[in-house]
Design a binder for these strands. Structure first.
Lengths: 343, 343
DNA sequence: CTGTTAGCGCTTTCAA
DNA sequence: TTGAAAGCGCTAACAG
């Protein structure tokens, strides 16, 4: 690939015998420029196949019209939907997205954040990785005057804009649904408790028991069961108990619920008659398993939209006194076959 | 968010009573700098929380260490996997990704490409949208001296680097599998024929018939059935024929195969006994439907990796004479329950 | 309405 | 090994 000399505003200016400032003004739709010269400039720019050098422009203006996104995994339904939601709302305002993935590794997350700071992004949107709980790098973002927005998996201790799901309430409603459906011994597959979202889901689980005056059975709670494989292992453990559960809430994801389904099927246990199964995230597959999985929709695309709008709102908001906003999106329980004991 | 004055190399230089050039040299690991001054500079940089301004650096160097990606949809399994594959390979070399989605709209695709040119990206990786077949904007990329790599959905007429799947062969093997499995009347759900990938899949379908000396039945070919809904509609039409097919190859995607499954189930037609079903893309759900769907894996993550490596290879390759490389990845037929007539 | 001028932060040649 | 100086392409304050 050989180096190509690109057309600059100087080339256009030279060709028309005017100065670069006029060209710049015309190109930026300033009204400080004669209508005829503008037309001429536009025409010439087009002829010379001029493309603005955003790098130079941004350097000069001290902003980048770029938003950096850091997620654990790009190719995970929830995250790619959030990103798509952000993209939709920001693109039309002329913003670009730089996307990084942390692979759930704290060190890579730090690297990503630093790269984004270097890039002078206007805003960093992040869902923190499961690994590690030191947030110096995020404090750093703030110190550099970059807007920081956390979503879904947030570091509570950091005072920033946040867009979260009401995990606790969703979880409460899910477990209530199980109890009302006649399930008595409800097991929980929980996620890493250093992530607030999983802690909240557990709290919702516990609150439901209290609300219905049902005692919590500790041995039915399985730690760290947040993949399909770990979910399956946890289920195997639960179902081999002297008093096995009659329902399992896979609070981490539908993948882990899938693990439950597979183990149950292998052990000849009927879902939902003998075992209720409830997942989380409304993955596309959850409606086509057999039986279909009752789950919780997180409105991921909408979440991305919300993040973007929050950013634009704060951009206009000059009042720095106000406390950083926290927007909570209420997830929705989607009832399907896997929890319909009495049908 | 108030403006924060960031530390620059001048701040570091001033504090140490040296010039910015030395600081720059130290920060760039030049060996033209005294070991002691380097250490001092590094230490001070750290103290002042210095972060390089990549914008300025790139402007000066005339490159951006950034790769632009344009895909129809970010939140589609295949594409997000390819992106993840690209990310993995480029991140460790210090490249950033700017990701745009065209939403299958030709106009938005043009906009995306122009934005990326403006950003002075070093390379544009694109899978073209289904809509439109004018490729002036891609020619433009080349004219601006930016490396262009097409993948999966490529514009054949453009001589660029390409990473594609051997769709024709995969399709051929898939249909051969159906024929050998005892299916006689095999229907085809085809995609928009202006996209080469769908044309190739149809060719493979036709070639299989020829290879086995089976006549092609035109009425079993349904145009433009590339979503779940369109796939379902096409299936309804096929199954209501006087001589309905005994197998359907949903060559566009597993989503459309899902549509087939649902219609068959609604009509009480047994899969695979009465109807064989074959999808495309090996979406995560395809192994958990009932019956599980026989499909074709495209190695999307690996495809992303390949794209990235191709870019780096060309970066080193100064020889511009050679024809642009086309790398073809052979997809793999994954045989599952939906085509096992005799079991 | 247009031109002049300075400078965003960095790299790189040339000279010392 | 270090410094001086120029300039990447663009914008914006100021002057005319």
């Amino acid at each position: 690939m050989k180096k190509v000399k690109r057309t600059t505003i100087y080339d256009i200016a030279a060709k028309l015998g005017i100065t670069a400032s006029s060209v710049s003004r015309a190109l930026n739709n300033s009204n400080q420029v004669n209508e005829k010269t503008r037309e001429l400039i536009m025409k010439t720019a087009d002829e010379l196949n001029y493309k603005r050098n955003t790098l130079a422009s941004n350097l000069r203006k001290g902003q980048s019209k770029t938003i950096g996104i850091v997620v654990p995994r790009i190719n995970q339904n929830f995250f790619s939907n959030v990103i798509a939601g952000i993209e939709e709302a920001t693109y039309q305002k002329g913003y670009n997205l730089i996307i990084c993935q942390s692979n759930e590794l704290h060190d890579k997350e730090i690297q990503c954040v630093n790269t984004l700071i270097n890039q002078h992004v206007d805003c960093i949107v992040i869902s923190v990785s499961a690994d590690g709980n030191d947030y110096q790098h995020l404090q750093n973002v703030i110190d550099h005057g970059i807007q920081l927005i956390q979503f879904d998996r947030v570091a509570d201790e950091l005072e920033t804009l946040k867009v979260i799901n009401d995990n606790e309430q969703a979880s409460f409603e899910a477990v209530s649904h199980l109890i009302e459906g006649g399930y008595k011994r409800i097991g929980l597959l929980e996620g890493p408790q250093n992530l607030a979202i999983f802690k909240q889901r557990k709290l919702g689980y516990l609150r439901a028991f209290k609300a219905y005056n049902v005692p919590v059975i500790d041995e039915l709670i399985v730690e760290n069961a947040w993949t399909k494989e770990l979910g399956a292992a946890g289920t195997r453990k639960l179902l081999n108990l002297p008093h096995p559960p009659d329902a399992i809430f896979a609070s981490t994801s539908d993948f882990s619920a899938l693990g439950v389904l597979e183990v149950a099927s292998a052990m000849g246990i009927k879902v939902p008659a003998e075992l209720g199964v409830l997942g989380y995230a409304n993955e596309s597959f959850s409606e086509i398993t057999s039986p279909s999985i009752t789950t919780i929709d997180q409105f991921s695309f909408y979440m991305g939209n919300t993040v973007a709008n929050l950013f634009f709102q704060e951009l206009e908001n000059t009042d720095t006194k106000t406390k950083p906003k926290i927007i909570s999106i209420k997830p929705e329980l989607i009832i399907r076959a896997s929890t319909s004991k009495n049908k």
